[in-house]
């Protein structure tokens, strides 16, 4: 593991560079193919409405994959991630237009751990609401 961030350089409260991720219908189709999750709630609005959703929603795992990029881009080496967990609290609704939805992710160091590891708490927002809860990663720094 070769994290480019030194353990000594961070403290509790250190903020990671925030990022925003666009989510369009085309991305959900591409993610369905790459991940093998073809649940029609992620690409068929007729089906989504029939099961009580307002519209097509993003795969929770897609949002989870985007959110951790704030951590992996920060440390450089994605192999430095030791733990990563989230709760899916609210679906990301993706309208059928050019813009889709926007997920805004921020993160900060929440605890310094042994073995040069830190806990990072993530916040992922869409339309002003949290879409991931209890979103935490443990990362081994350099």
């Amino acid at each position: 593991m070769t994290a480019k961030v030194a353990y000594e350089s961070v403290e509790v409260g250190t903020e990671l560079p925030a990022q925003s991720f666009q989510v369009t219908r085309a991305m959900l189709v591409q993610y369905a193919g790459a991940s093998g999750d073809f649940n029609p709630i992620h690409w068929n609005e007729k089906f989504a409405r029939e099961v009580g959703l307002p519209d097509v929603i993003a795969h929770g795992m897609f949002t989870m994959a985007e959110a951790i990029r704030v951590v992996t881009d920060w440390v450089g080496d994605p192999g430095a991630v030791v733990e990563y967990g989230v709760r899916f609290t609210k679906p990301v609704v993706v309208p059928n237009d050019d813009d889709g939805a926007l997920v805004e992710v921020s993160a900060k160091v929440a605890a310094l751990l042994d073995d040069k590891q830190v806990r990072v708490d993530l916040t992922a927002m869409n339309e002003g609401k949290k879409v991931l809860g209890m979103s935490r990663a443990v990362v081994r720094l350099g």
């Binding site: 593991m1 070769t2 991940s35 093998g36 999750d37 795992m61 989870m64 994959a65 951790i68 992996t72 450089g76 080496d77 994605p78 192999g79 991630v81 990563y84």
Partner: peptide
């Protein structure tokens, strides 16, 4: 260069 023997997968890849 990061110490891995081949390309690695993104953290959530293994969920599939």
């Amino acid at each position: 260069a990061l110490g891995h023997s081949d390309v690695i997968a993104p953290p959530t890849f293994v969920f599939s």
